[in-house]
Write a protein that binds this DNA or RNA. Structure first.
Length: 584
DNA sequence: GCCGTTTTCGGCCCGACTGTTTTCAGTCG
């Protein structure tokens, strides 16, 4: 177990994965064997989806991850202890870091980049532009005018490229794309697959799968869309476009009888598909989007549904949210996958705001909207007094308590009285215990002093868990998807405290948060923690954020039993009472 | 470099599309 105060360079999983991918690419540039550098790619993927690396190292569990053996484990440990590693330093002696600019240009892969570097010394975007300007590139083999034109376009796109797109925005864009496709030639089925369907927090591109008997006509309709800023590829069954801003949309159209194969193939992830195909190959079955080929008999099995695909391979059906290549295949072989929580299991939502704090709909509108969703109960959780103008003081809180009970009755829903109380820098709360004791539910969140040291933040969160009146830790890491990685603390220590004290950890469904992140929730479950899925809605329409929260819970492998707000009201009250009585 | 429901050594996913080519290498997902 990692102790407080140990001098570790705390690289996040994402940072470690990025460095492993850098090693992978530079090794390929250096001409290392294929299966050597791809091993680093697979390891990077495993790290991205794993629990916190520092905790895994401390627990001696690094080698448990698929694709990580002794050599790569040593590299990861070196990265964690020093922030750097000899392997990467050596590679950077040969290639400057700006080589990744060249590789970032769409259409330039490792082979081309290596040739450009060796023959012309092109090691940056500026070098590349100068070489094109000077007409040097035409000397290269297979470098015709069209390739050079595409390269110029790729450079422009690289410069103006936006980052990965947050899940909620990508879902909205996918809906727009599919609405357009439906206006064209007849299609049987149409669905957004890829990382979007897996519920990843951000997506790099949007994959749309479609079945139709008129593929060519559908493709033609698609590439002629007025929102298509550029057409990157156009074939008989597949096309790719860029939207304004650079988001790529891929459309694949096949006949309806292979819908299951098609959907499985394009839902991925890459690592999941590789593992699935390697597994299948050992049974002499070759899996692709076109069907399952039996290499011995030559028979092709096509599947109308994904369930049939997994069944044909002798596997339990694997839900999309679990297809990240981190051991789900092993579980499926043994029929041991968890039965994931579903939206329909959720009986209430503990976290929403009204105009009493910083929400945009008034109390009655929020309560009516919660009732309209069919919830049995919910709670209004405004901010606490320390938030100044947007927060409630104890008198306002008491006034609201009367009000919410009346309104709940009027709308035939149990409206619990709650508050999202600030956790102050020392771990105490923004209300004294006697005020908290009047509430049905207490959500406690960090909103200030987010740059505290790891030790201070760890103690702060543990102290909040230890308060007998705290029911839920709200958005536990504070991460903001596009801008902030989250405050630093000892995850294992806080998860253990949450489990020990009977404090639930929130999976906050606000589009910019999705916090706890799924890999951390997965880790917290190992400590026996309980969770909630909440919308953190600031207006009535945002109550649907609960769907994003459920998706993240599913990615974490959580079941109905792991959550608090899948329980009947009695069960919720018992959870709260148990913690309060234990403390007394 | 990793890994085993054929293997601790000998394998390692699959196919579409492009641009350049007269048969394919490179890129991408």
């Amino acid at each position: 177990m990692l102790r407080l105060g140990e001098a570790w360079t705390l690289l996040t999983n994402a940072e470690i994965a990025r460095k492993l991918n850098e090693i992978r690419t530079l090794m390929e540039l250096a001409g290392e064997p294929y299966f050597k550098f791809t091993a680093y790619e697979r390891a990077a993927s495993a790290i991205e989806n794993a629990g916190p690396v520092n905790d895994l190292i401390a627990a001696g569990e690094l080698l448990v991850l698929p694709g990580i053996g002794k050599s790569i484990a040593a590299t990861i440990e070196e990265l964690c202890s020093s922030g750097d590693c000899g392997l990467l330093r050596d590679l950077y002696v040969r290639f400057p870091p700006t080589i990744f600019e060249v590789l970032g240009v769409s259409g330039i892969g490792v082979k081309t980049a290596a040739t450009l570097f060796e023959r012309f010394g092109i090691a940056s975007l500026a070098d590349l532009e100068a070489a094109i300007e000077a007409g040097k590139l035409a000397e290269m083999p297979r470098m015709g005018p069209k390739t050079i034109e595409n390269m110029k376009r790729g450079i422009l796109a690289y410069k103006g490229r936006s980052r990965r797109t947050p899940l909620a925005r990508a879902k909205a864009i996918a809906a727009t794309v599919m609405a357009y496709v439906r206006e064209g030639p007849p299609v049987a089925r149409l669905l957004a697959a890829g990382s979007l369907r897996r519920g990843e927090v951000t997506v790099g591109d949007v994959d749309i799968v479609c079945t139709s008997e008129e593929a060519a006509a559908v493709i033609d309709w698609f590439v002629r869309w007025e929102s298509a800023h550029a057409v990157l590829a156009e074939g008989p069954t597949k096309a790719s476009i860029w939207l304004e801003g650079g988001l790529q949309i891929d459309l694949r159209v096949l006949p309806d009888h292979v819908y299951g194969n098609l959907l499985q193939h394009f839902t991925g992830s890459r690592e999941h598909n590789i593992q699935l195909r390697e597994f299948s190959l050992r049974k002499s079955l070759r899996v692709s989007e076109n069907g399952i080929l039996n290499l011995e008999s030559g028979d092709v099995t096509t599947c109308a549904s994904e369930e049939e695909v997994y069944a044909a391979l002798g596997l339990q059906f694997i839900p999309p949210e679990l297809r990240s290549g981190i051991g789900e295949l092993e579980l499926a072989k043994n029929n041991a996958l968890p039965r994931l929580v579903e939206l329909a299991d959720v009986r209430g939502d503990f976290h929403m705001h009204s105009t009493w704090s910083d929400g945009r709909n008034d109390l009655e509108e929020m309560i009516a909207a919660a009732a309209a969703r069919g919830y049995e109960y919910h709670s209004i959780s405004e901010h606490s007094q320390g938030r100044g103008r947007v927060g409630l003081d104890p008198a306002e809180l008491r006034a609201q308590r009367q009000k919410v009970r009346e309104l709940g009755d009027r709308h035939h829903i149990v409206t619990l009285c709650s508050n999202e109380v600030d956790i102050l820098p020392d771990g105490s709360l923004d209300f004294p215990d006697e005020v908290l004791a009047e509430l049905d539910i207490v959500v406690a969140s960090v909103h200030s002093a987010i740059n505290q040291s790891r030790d201070e933040m760890t103690r702060r969160l543990i102290r909040a868990c230890e308060n007998p009146f705290v029911t839920i830790i709200g958005h536990p890491t504070g991460r903001m998807i596009e801008s902030f990685a989250g405050y630093e603390f000892d995850y294992d220590a806080v998860f253990a405290a949450a489990a020990r004290t009977g404090t639930a950890l929130e999976i906050d469904g606000q589009a910019g948060r999705l916090d706890l992140p799924a890999p951390l929730a997965r880790r917290a479950k190992e400590f026996g923690a309980t969770f909630t899925v909440d919308s953190d809605a600031h207006d009535a329409t945002q109550l649907e954020n609960i769907e994003l929260a459920v998706t993240q819970a599913r990615r974490a492998g959580l079941t109905k039993d792991d959550l608090l707000n899948t329980r009947p009201l009695d069960g919720v009250r018992a959870f709260v009472a148990a913690k309060r009585s234990r403390a007394a």
